[in-house]
């Protein structure tokens, strides 16, 4: 699948980036194409472009806070989970995508 993802935790210095790394790693292992945008204390990094989102089958939000510029994702299926889940059990998130 073609996946876009956003990670964001309240402090934005640790969990945000660890979650992004996990999603990228597991996503690639499972054979998906995945791009992860981080919304940490530095603001939006590795920003998802309009084309990225248009071409994606599904969006994963691994977030504990509101996603910035959420309207970009209108019209695409969104799976929203706590950022912790991306660290503890990232595979379960990808399992949810199939539903």
């Amino acid at each position: 699948m073609n996946i876009v993802a956003v990670t964001a935790c309240p402090t934005g210095i640790a969990h945000t980036y660890m979650a992004a790394a996990q999603l990228e790693k597991i996503g690639k292992e499972l054979g998906h194409k995945i791009k992860v945008e981080t919304q940490g204390a530095m603001g939006i990094e590795n920003e998802l472009t309009v084309t990225d989102i248009k071409n994606a089958d599904v969006a994963i939000f691994a977030v504990d806070i509101e996603v910035e510029e959420r309207q970009r994702f209108n019209g695409i299926k969104i799976v929203e989970v706590p950022v912790q889940l991306a660290l503890k059990d990232p595979k379960s998130i990808f399992a949810k995508l199939a539903d």
């Binding site: 309240p10 204390a41 977030v63």
Partner: peptide, 14 residues
């Protein structure tokens, strides 16, 4: 609700 509160806290931390 938790997400709203954390969004505020997140911006306030720096």
């Amino acid at each position: 609700l938790r997400q709203y509160l954390l969004t505020g806290v997140s911006h306030a931390i720096p």
